[in-house]
């Protein structure tokens, strides 16, 4: 192998090593970069979901919609968590109020986050929460029980086919 070729190979090796180093560095830089990106764009819910304010929606007194409530607790949460009432009948556009009960029977201060889900899924856009405990994490002291209010209305635009909507909250443990 002649000298020129050997030199060229050496230069290439150095360049490649530098590239590896740069790529590794970039990988580490990704986490702060991604955080920044989320902060700027509000991606991934990092800025927190906005609470929709009820417009003076017209109440459709001719229709009834049954709203069912249910709750689930993820494993690892020793909490009790359930809706205060399992179902209520509302008119579309009418503001209604109910609550969920949470109790921390343990000796430790714990926090949880309730994630809502609506079924049928495509009716979610017609289900508006005015006041909801799901936007912040809930901290309960040892033995503390709390009634968590939920104020909502079903949009009058809800397709006439839908008679029943179910709202479910899943309580996830929040660590750290």
């Amino acid at each position: 192998m002649d000298e020129a070729l050997r030199q060229a190979n050496r230069r290439l090796t150095i360049k490649l090593l530098l590239m590896v180093a740069a790529a590794t560095g970039f990988a580490f830089a990704l986490v702060p970069f991604y955080d920044l990106l989320c902060k700027v764009t509000g991606l991934n819910g990092k800025t927190g979901a906005a609470v929709q304010i009820a417009q003076a929606a017209k109440i459709d007194t001719a229709r009834w919609v049954t709203v069912e409530f249910t709750g689930a607790v993820m494993p690892g949460m020793s909490w009790e968590f359930r809706p205060a009432q399992t179902r209520m009948r509302v008119h579309p556009g009418e503001t209604a109020k109910t609550s969920y009960l949470a109790k921390n029977p343990t000796n430790r201060t714990m926090s949880g986050q309730a994630v809502p889900s609506v079924s049928p899924g495509w009716t979610a856009e017609h289900f508006n929460k005015i006041e909801c405990f799901c936007f912040q994490r809930q901290v309960l002291q040892p033995g503390e029980a709390r009634e968590m209010p939920l104020v909502f209305f079903v949009s009058p635009e809800l397709p006439a086919d839908v008679h029943e909507i179910t709202l479910s909250y899943t309580l996830f443990p929040v660590s750290g």
Partner: peptide, 9 residues
């Protein structure tokens, strides 16, 4: 159970 009767996590 602790003194107050809370569940020992």
């Amino acid at each position: 159970l602790d003194k107050e009767g809370h569940l020992f996590k």
